[in-house]
Structure formats: C-alpha cells, structure tokens
C-alpha cells in the first residue's frame, strides 16, 4: 500500500515533471513518481544507509546536507522541489525555502502538525512534551529542530509573500478538511512565488 502522503504528492505532480526531492530518504517517493508519473528526478539525503537504499532502487541521489548544492542550479531548473517530512529538521528554513522556490516552479512541503489535539492534551493536561504517533520521539532523541503547527506554517508563508497554491491535510491515514490545525497530524502545501 502506498503511503497517503506519497499518494497525495504523486497526484499533485504532473506526468513527466522534473523533480528534486530534498531529504529523499530511501528514494521511495522518487521511485513512485518515476513509475507512476514518468518523472525524472533526483534527491539529496544526509544518511549514508538511506543513500545506498535509494541507489539500490535505481534512484539518482546525492549524499549530503539538503541545502548543499541548491545554489548550483539555474532558476526554475525543476518543476517541483519536494521537502516532505524534512523541513522540521532544517536549521536555516528561510534560506532553504527561498532557494527551493528559486530552483523550482513549485515547492511541495509536507510537515507534521505539532499542535494536533493529542499533542495539545498531553501538553495541557499532563504537562508533558507530547509524544504521538506522528511525533514519536522523546524530547532527548528527537531529530526535529523546529516545532510548528499547520497554522504557523500558513502564517510563515503569508509573512514571506509565498503563495500557498494548494493545501491538503492528513489525519489517521485519511484526508481531512475541517479544523485542520486541531485534527490533522500532517499537512502538505504546494507553494509558489505567486
């Protein structure tokens, strides 16, 4: 079964599009996009084990920090730049989003919602930093550096003059559209320079 976030992203992207996946992991999404959509794509991944798994899948991938080589690409070199489940682990978010919007016509950002209702309950009633299915880490071992809600991300885009072309929200493996900042555990945003 295909992960819902991958399915949503695959549905957003047009056939044959040129894709750059920042933080591509084992290359599963790029493989899906190649097989279902005929996309030409490449990825960047920091973990060497994941890089090798991606190469095993026949994905073009390079090993390193997400932002490392973005500056070498010409403007609008890609149709889509994907930052799925990687944005929350980045230090210089503004610069990366800016560069991603420069090299891609569209940028797809998938983020977990740190203000989901289950997280809020743990925070409010238990006085604990939340640990949930979509945020499974403890405070001392989380790879996440940025803790944001879906609303935080929407207002970030508004402040930076980034247009949200589309937004899709996921909860428990289904799409939701109401009270998203409370009920969705993740959001997928399609961004452009407008």
């Amino acid at each position: 079964m295909i992960r819902l976030d991958y399915e949503i992203i695959a549905n957003i992207i047009e056939p044959g599009a040129k894709v750059l996946d920042l933080g591509c992991g084992d290359g599963e999404l790029l493989t899906l996009l190649r097989e279902k959509k005929g996309c030409r794509g490449t990825g960047i991944e920091i973990d060497d084990g994941e890089v090798m798994r991606a190469i095993e899948k026949g994905v073009s991938v390079s090993h390193g920090d997400i932002g490392r080589d973005l500056d070498v690409y010409a403007d609008k070199r890609f149709d889509y730049v994907i930052l799925n489940e990687s944005l929350q682990q980045i230090i210089n978010i503004e610069k990366i989003i800016d560069e991603a919007l420069r090299v891609g016509r569209y940028v797809i950002v998938g983020i977990p919602n740190f203000c989901h209702i289950r997280a809020r309950i743990q925070l409010f009633f238990h006085g604990r930093v939340p640990v949930t299915k979509s945020l499974p880490y403890k405070w001392y071992n989380t790879p996440n550096l940025r803790f944001l809600s879906l609303r935080d991300f929407r207002s970030f885009c508004c402040e930076k003059g980034v247009k949200i072309e589309k937004a899709r929200y996921l909860a428990e493996g289904q799409e939701v559209s109401l009270c998203t900042n409370l009920l969705a555990d993740a959001g997928i945003f399609v961004l452009s320079r407008g």
Binding site: D48, V61, H63
Partner: peptide, 21 residues
C-alpha cells in the same frame, strides 16, 4: 568529489554520489 558533483549538477547531468564510511 563533492566539488565534481556540484559541477555535474550545475550542468544538469544525472549524478549519484555517496561518501562511504
């Protein structure tokens, strides 16, 4: 190697790179 990879990317060439431990 990373310098080479950057220049290959700048030319829009298909490149895979890994630094093995």
């Amino acid at each position: 190697s990373q310098h080479l990879v950057r220049s290959l990317k700048a030319n829009d060439l298909d490149v895979s790179y890994v630094e093995l431990k």
